[in-house]
């Protein structure tokens, strides 16, 4: 816990219903431990409690019970938030300000002196690809530009921890690629990133660890590689039959398919791999590949949320 960047213990948020309505669970009994330098993907379907969790971490919601610490200090401590950058989902910024004025306002809240602010603003705009748009009014920005500016305001204090709510949802493919590069660059600079996402392919590309939330509860957490490894399903053997196909007796129990001129068979047991390879070679066939089939993060996700 002392080394944790984010640590939550029994973190719970129950929303009291309006008159005549039942209370609803935002998130319940959440235990999280995010380590320094990690990129942690917080996954879950809509309504799972991802945004509630992020809002609890950024003091926008008050917990019903439990506690949340960032860098070992309660999130209520103002000093803690000096080291944090936060981008809400589809950030809205002050339309009447220019992008540079917006960042200047945020920099002032962080107490950055005027001598630092000017260069920091220009560097940050450059970093998110808005170098030429600093003087434009925010109300003229597209959704993608708004997302980039949202990221810029989170980077203005050079935070050690970045909390991002669905950071890639409003971006086009180029924007998403830029964003992934930015996340990896920040990771290389030793920053910790905690982001929620429903775009699993993006999460798979950048995350070290992930947690899967469903109906307010954390149902799975772990190193991404381990999670996917543990979900290895089958081994695929591709070969080109030559001079005759493997005999029916040898491979009758397997089913074949055709893929790009190759014959493909999927097995689950290592001894079946040996049997198939031996049969292919015995009948003069040419082995093309033997590849374990890793499940995608989407497969893991679907399995965990019970779909």
């Amino acid at each position: 816990m002392t080394d944790s960047v984010i640590f939550t213990e029994d973190l719970t948020k129950i929303y009291q219903g309006e008159l005549g309505q039942k209370p609803t669970v935002g998130v319940e009994g959440l235990h999280l431990d995010v380590r320094p330098g990690e990129v942690f993907a917080f996954l879950g379907p809509n309504g799972a409690g991802k945004t509630s969790t992020l809002k609890l971490l950024t003091r926008l919601l008050m917990p019903t019970r439990g506690r949340a610490l960032i860098f070992g200090e309660p999130v209520s401590d103002n000093r803690t938030m000096r080291r944090v950058g936060f981008v809400p989902e589809q950030p809205n910024l002050y339309g009447y300000l220019t992008a540079a004025e917006m960042l200047d306002f945020i920099a002032k809240i962080f107490g950055l002196p005027a001598s630092v602010r000017k260069k920091r603003i220009s560097d940050t705009l450059d970093r998110v690809g808005l170098a030429a748009s600093g003087g434009l009014a925010v109300r003229t920005f597209s959704r993608g530009m708004m997302q980039r500016l949202g990221m810029a305001q989170a980077l203005i204090n050079d935070p050690d921890l970045l909390i991002l709510d669905e950071p890639m949802s409003a971006l086009d493919p180029i924007g998403r690629k830029d964003f992934r590069d930015l996340i990896l660059d920040l990771k290389n600079r030793g920053k910790t990133l905690f982001f929620s996402s429903h775009i699993l392919s993006d999460a798979e590309l950048v995350a070290d660890r992930c947690g899967i939330l469903n109906r307010g509860r954390l149902v799975q957490t772990g190193i991404l590689g381990d999670l996917l490894e543990s979900q290895t399903g089958s081994i695929e053997i591709a070969f080109i039959p030559a001079g005759g196909r493997p005999s029916a007796e040898d491979l009758a129990r397997f089913s074949f398919s055709e893929q790009g001129g190759n014959r493909v068979v999927r097995v689950t047991r290592p001894e079946d791999v040996t049997a198939v390879v031996a049969a292919v070679q015995a009948h003069g066939g040419r082995l093309v590949s033997v590849s374990p089939q890793r499940k995608s993060l989407e497969d893991v996700f679907m399995a965990e949320i019970g779909r």
Binding site: K55, T58, R59, L60, N78, R79, T80, M81, R82, V84, F86, P88, P91, N92, L93, Y94, I106, I109, F110, G111, G150, Q153
Partner: peptide, 13 residues
């Protein structure tokens, strides 16, 4: 407009 999310997640009381 949810601009309040940006501001109150910063070190401001």
């Amino acid at each position: 407009q949810r601009t309040i999310y940006l501001i109150l997640s910063k070190p401001i009381r």
